[in-house]
Design a protein around this nucleic acid. Structure first.
Length: 221
DNA sequence: GCCCAGGTGGGTA
DNA sequence: TACCCACATGGG
């Protein structure tokens, strides 16, 4: 992690330290393989993780949780397995699309993704239908260990509640803030994003914010 | 019944 | 560029 920086860098690093001390190592992403990370990243779009877990389990039992298995599966069986995550028709097409992309880039060996330059990899992912910045960055960070911070709804809410950003701050601006504060550190990005999701779920809730109990209360600029 | 959940893309002004 | 809306299911 970086050592020097401006005040904003320091606040973000303090936030990281406080959350890390409170929650400990969260060991993200919760998945058994690179492919499972990628599938989960798409399934969790605007959907609670509990529903994603059900779908992952369903995919596994239908032998669809491998690149080859999903690629040869018909639409209907994928749709049936992931229905509980919502948007199941769109997500089925997104899953099929990324499977084709992965095979074209890596064959059936996702380790070969390690050879692709990070910026080019990101551009390629973003060019796929249904892969926006958050999904692309989740895949880069958690499936391919690239130093890219993932900004999500929780990040926006936690940063806004703590006065680090305004309501209209862009994805890339928030990402730049964290890149600047923590340095291009895969492990730090991995853990920090996980910590933000955790504090977001438990304390920085949309309507009923439990600020009094929040482990990062009273951080100041 | 209402709000929300680890977003994205297309349309319109 | 900045909003709005569709996409869909499940839990509190």
């Amino acid at each position: 992690m970086k050592k020097k920086g401006n005040k904003l860098d320091i606040v973000i690093r303090n936030m990281y330290r406080r959350l890390d001390g409170y929650f400990g190592d969260l060991k993200w992403w919760p998945a058994r393989s690179r492919f499972e990370v990628i599938i989960g990243a798409i399934l969790t779009q605007n959907t609670s993780w509990k529903n994603v877990e059900k779908a992952i389990k369903e995919l596994r039992s239908r032998k669809l949780l491998t690149l080859k298995g999903m690629r040869i599966a018909d639409r209907k069986s994928i749709q049936k397995a992931i229905r509980c995550t919502g948007y199941f028709r769109q997500k089925t097409e997104r899953l099929r699309g990324i499977c084709e992309f992965l095979v074209s880039e890596c064959g059936y060996d996702l380790k070969k993704g390690g050879l692709i330059d990070t910026d080019i990899f990101r551009e390629k992912l973003l060019s796929l239908n249904g892969i926006g910045p958050e999904t692309a960055d989740s895949i880069l960070l958690y499936a391919f260990n690239r130093p890219v911070f993932v900004v999500d709804a929780y990040t926006m809410r936690v940063f806004e509640r703590h006065g680090l950003i305004g309501g209209k701050t862009q994805y890339s601006d928030v990402q730049d803030m964290v890149h600047s504060a923590l340095g291009r550190d895969v492990q730090a990005f991995n853990q920090f994003h996980a910590l933000i999701v955790e504090v977001g779920k438990r304390f920085c809730i949309k309507k009923a914010c439990k600020c009094g109990e929040c482990p990062i209360k009273s951080l100041s600029l």
